[in-house]
């Protein structure tokens, strides 16, 4: 392999402040939620809000600690893996498009049913990930989604709602 040209990372990972803010907000919400809880029944020695208070407070503290650590130059070690090349930056476009495909699946599944949206999900993801033969992608997707529908229905006895294809499948 050629020597990795590591992009010169800035001293402070600014995005990590975002994570710290998220933790403080999440912790704050947990605390707020806990404050709205009432005393438990007489047979509940542990009040319903005890653990939420602990968890919420801990999240807020951890968020602040992370912000402090970030300011002092702490940088995350992004996860490595067999199929991961960290020398290049994050491919935001691919991830965004994949998320869109998943959102489309959520929006359409109640109407169209898994047999159709599953195929679209597979083909869509494959195209986003760089496959260029979309006819083959769609064929594989349809085979998988219809196959899994029948597999669940016949093999496992789990009837997945058929959606628009009700009566056809």
């Amino acid at each position: 392999m050629t020597a990795p040209t590591t992009p010169s990372t800035p001293l402070v990972d600014k995005a990590q402040y975002g994570l710290a803010a998220f933790l403080v907000l999440a912790g704050g919400y947990v605390l707020l939620d806990a404050a709205g809880l009432e005393d438990g029944f007489a047979d509940q020695p542990v009040q319903p809000y005890t653990l939420p208070y602990v968890v919420g407070a801990a999240l807020v503290v951890l968020g602040i600690l992370l912000a402090v650590a970030t300011a002092r130059g702490d940088r995350p070690e992004a996860e490595e893996g067999e199929d991961i090349d960290l020398t290049q930056g994050t491919d935001v476009r691919t991830v965004g498009l994949l998320a869109l495909v998943l959102v489309a699946n959520i929006a359409l599944i109640d109407v169209l049913g898994w047999a159709i949206t599953g195929a679209l999900l597979f083909a869509g993801s494959a195209v986003v990930l760089g496959s260029r033969s979309w006819v083959r992608d769609l064929a594989v997707g349809v085979a998988l989604s219809v196959g899994s529908w029948y597999g669940f229905y016949v093999g496992l006895g789990i009837p997945i709602p058929a959606g628009i294809l009700d009566g056809v499948l």
Binding site: L98, G118, L121, F122, S125, A126, L129, G130, S131, L144
Partner: peptide, 22 residues
């Protein structure tokens, strides 16, 4: 090919999560 591998993961993950409660 990776596109199929990862599309497959997303497919089966969605199927699995959906099949819990539809």
């Amino acid at each position: 090919p990776r596109p199929y591998l990862y599309a497959g993961i997303l497919f089966f993950a969605s199927l699995g999560a959906y099949s819990v409660n539809f």
